[in-house]
Simulated assay, not measured.
Amino acid sequence: MRSPEGRQKEISDLVLERGSLSAQELATLFDVSVMTIHRDLDELERQGFVRKYRGGVTALPSGVFESNVAYRQKAMRAEKEAIAKHALQYVEPGMSIMLDDATTAAKMIPHLAGFTPLRVATNYLEGMRQLSQIREVALMALGGDYEPLHDSFLGETCLECIESIRVDAVFMSTSALSGQYSFHQEDRIVAVKRKMLEVAARRYLLVDHSKLGKVALRRLVSLSEFDLVIVDSGAPEHALAELARRDVAYELAS
């Protein structure tokens, strides 16, 4: 018989795989009552793994809620890999670069060994672990209050860490692009991304095509603040035409 903790782990894995499920579907799959499932979902929501809605649960993002990092790591993998590899052409040995806690920017990390020596700053905990294993990469950890939902450090201390340095380039992503603006769901994330943009000489926005033509609760910055937007080749023509119409510099990663 499954323990509540074991069942909750299986529920979390299943929701991350499928995106959304109803409470009734989960009750049937795990042969427990709907009330038991709701208790499980309350705990998983408290931990930040999933988000409840009327009658079910989801790991999908919305205009108000960001997906947790485990879901984002699984989403649009091939597109993120292509974007990250394209971005590497703007990295040179001897540079100082900054990566945010986006899973797209994180795809650059395994390839940075070919561009050393580098100084790399990030607030993404898993990124710190990976970077610490690469020879001739000087890691700068941007600390603060740890946020499990994003596996990253946020808050005033993180902002102060960022403000204290200057870097040659920042590579970041965000949740949505629409019109001339970029957006994100959370004000804490917006604050960190804006501060990163302030301290970077060059600014690169890495976004897969699923984020184009969408908005989220918080406006981040105008797309004109970025030197370049890199998007995968799955981007629809109308979205690219909109970027061109607004004089946003972009490149397609194949």
Rank of each mutant, 00 (worst) to 15 (best):
A84V: 00
E92G: 05
S67Q: 03
Q89G: 01
D31E: 11
T28H: 10
V50Y: 00
D13P: 07
R46G: 06
V57Y: 12
L118Q: 01
L41C: 00
T103F: 07
E79G: 14
Q24A: 12
S62R: 06
T122N: 04
G94K: 04
E66F: 13
I37T: 09
M128L: 07
D100M: 06
V64L: 06
E25G: 07
L41T: 01
I83R: 02
S33F: 04
G19A: 07
V69K: 14
L131A: 13
N123E: 02
Q24I: 11
R119Y: 12
E43D: 08
E17P: 08
F49N: 11
T122D: 04
T28W: 05
T58H: 09
T36W: 00
F65T: 06
I37N: 09
D42N: 02
I37F: 09
S33I: 05
K80A: 01
S20L: 07
A113H: 14
T116M: 06
D101A: 14
L26T: 09
F115E: 04
D13G: 09
A70E: 15
D40I: 05
Q47F: 09
K52F: 01
N123D: 03
Y71M: 07
L26W: 14
R51L: 15
T36K: 02
A70V: 13
A59D: 05
Q73D: 13
R77Y: 08
F30R: 04
L29I: 12
G48K: 04
D42R: 06
G48Y: 02
M98C: 08
K107R: 15
F30W: 09
K74H: 06
Q47W: 08
S62Y: 04
T28S: 10
A75G: 14
L118R: 00
G114W: 05
K85S: 00
M35W: 14
S67V: 05
Q89H: 02
T58S: 15
K107Q: 15
G114E: 10
T122G: 05
Y90S: 11
H111G: 02
T116W: 05
G19E: 02
S62G: 08
M76T: 09
V57T: 14
T104K: 02
L21I: 08
S12R: 14
L26D: 11
Q24E: 13
L99Q: 06
E25T: 09
F49Y: 15
L99A: 03
A84S: 00
A82D: 08
A75T: 15
A59P: 03
G48V: 04
L14K: 10
A27K: 12
A84Q: 00
I109V: 15
V32D: 10
L118C: 00
S12I: 07
M76Y: 12
V91S: 02
M76F: 12
E43M: 04
V57M: 08
Q130K: 11
L112I: 02
G127W: 00
